[in-house]
Amino acid sequence: MSTQMSTPMIEQLAGKGAARAARRKLHGVDKRPGWLTYCALAAVVLISFYPIWFTILLASSNAGEIARNPIPSLIPAGEFLTNVTRVIESDIKFWTALANSIIVSTVTAISVVFFSTLAGYSFAKLRFRGSNGLLVFVIATMAVPTQLSIVPLFILMSELDWVGKLQAVIVPGMVTAFGVFWMTQYLREALPFELIEAARVDGASMIRTFWSVAMPAARPAAAMLALFTFVGSWTNFFWPFIILGSANPTLPVALQLLQASYFKDYSLIMAGVVVATLPLVILFAVAGRQLVAGIMQGAVKG
């Protein structure tokens, strides 16, 4: 019942948004930006892209070339596939690591988004005793320096018998203060009280209201949080290295082993970096469009 009550409202609003988009053209708010904007952004993207290009350059070269030319030529040499094959076939449990990384990052991202949205919605839009104090507490937990936590956290994991197991990496990251704070701040502005009240008047329960009103409104921020969390978890090295080790590694832990010699072969190491970054680029390509769509939808609702 209540879903049917609230969905039309969103549709109605979306309709308004569409109408507004039509009006926009008249006033020229969203006309195409000039070449100066493109130039500025192109400069930013070029700087951002260079390290990736540099990595590909080294990954398609070989150790001798790299040593002889400290600043590589801008055109890649032809040994990229050879180096990638060397990475995959070296004794580092590559496929286990890839599977582990996918599991850890996916579970973490979904869990962080869900629990953070739930908590963020509560802090931003629901009234309850102590909410301000509790939010400050959440933010304060971010200020705890992590360097020393490694030892007590290891003791804890050891007591739980989780050393070497994936849950030792997943569970501590299942909901983050960053995520809660982010969702709180976003929903404060992006979700009008009227929407919630309308759903409540329609007799929707609290969780139903959250699901049908807050979740859709949170989508753009949620997509971004999911992306950030996934990437953060995907590139995390130190804790997985300590608690999992090379026996049951994630991708960064496994690929670090490519550096296990006195002389570092950067063609091999960088091929490893490319292999580890590729899934993220694919994710960007797929989720990126979703992200843009999500942002637009959010804009419509504001």
Binding site: P152, F154, I155, S158, F241, I242, G245, L257, L258, Q259
Partner: peptide, 25 residues
């Protein structure tokens, strides 16, 4: 035999000190 390996001696040292300090692992 189950082999564990760290890339560099610094990483191995951090790992060993953590486990010595934690008393297990």
């Amino acid at each position: 035999i189950e082999a564990r390996k760290a890339a560099t001696s610094n990483e191995a040292r951090d790992n060993m000190n953590t486990r010595l300090a934690a008393g297990s692992g």
